[in-house]
């Protein structure tokens, strides 16, 4: 298990190193390299950012500044389970903000307040299925014309599939 994990980490590092070599000396490649790193590790940790800065011979503050400027880059690990409500205009006029309130009230939270919620709830700018709003993404499942019951059902289904 641990060995597996280590070799996986190593191969991820290799991917990152490859991207760094490919873009050697090209200062415009920073955003590209960050994309690769995030793809490999799921997010950009402090260590990853310092590593990139050292390899690209850029000031760490510059690398951090660029990474934190763009919303697409995650500086913290992604949550294990995620419910994303589309907040784009097309979904908004089809009631996405009311749906968001309902989801926050009725989904994902467990009864025990000390318990961690069952999923992180967030919004996105547009989930790309604008003709079918409101759209909600539950991890990798995209729900069209979604309501609270759909979200709960998807969460339950995924739980079942995982176990």
């Amino acid at each position: 298990m641990n060995a597996d994990h280590n070799s996986e980490q190593r191969s991820r590092h290799k991917q990152l190193d490859r991207a760094l070599t490919r873009h050697q000396g090209a200062p415009d490649a920073l955003v590209e390299v960050l994309h690769t790193a995030q793809q490999q590790f799921g997010y950009l940790s402090k260590e990853t950012l310092s590593y990139i800065a050292a390899q690209m011979q850029l000031p760490p503050s510059h690398v951090y500044g660029v990474a934190s400027y763009y919303p697409f880059f995650r500086l913290t690990p992604p949550p294990e389970r995620e419910v994303t409500i589309c907040a784009g205009t097309a979904c908004y006029v089809n009631g996405s903000s009311r749906l968001e309130k309902e989801i926050r009230a009725h989904c994902c939270a467990t009864k025990d307040p000390n318990d961690t919620p069952a999923a992180d709830i967030g919004t996105a700018r547009c989930l790309g299925a604008c003709g079918n709003g409101p759209i909600v993404r539950v991890n990798n499942d995209v729900l069209l014309r979604a309501n609270v019951d759909d979200v709960n059902a998807a969460l339950a289904q995924q739980e079942e599939d995982a176990s």
Partner: peptide, 25 residues
Amino acid sequence: LRVGAGAFVCGEETALLRSIEGLRG
């Protein structure tokens, strides 16, 4: 191909060009 990183303002042309150059857009 250059992959953007999710800032609306990067669609503005001068910001977009900076982003291609690897800077804050």
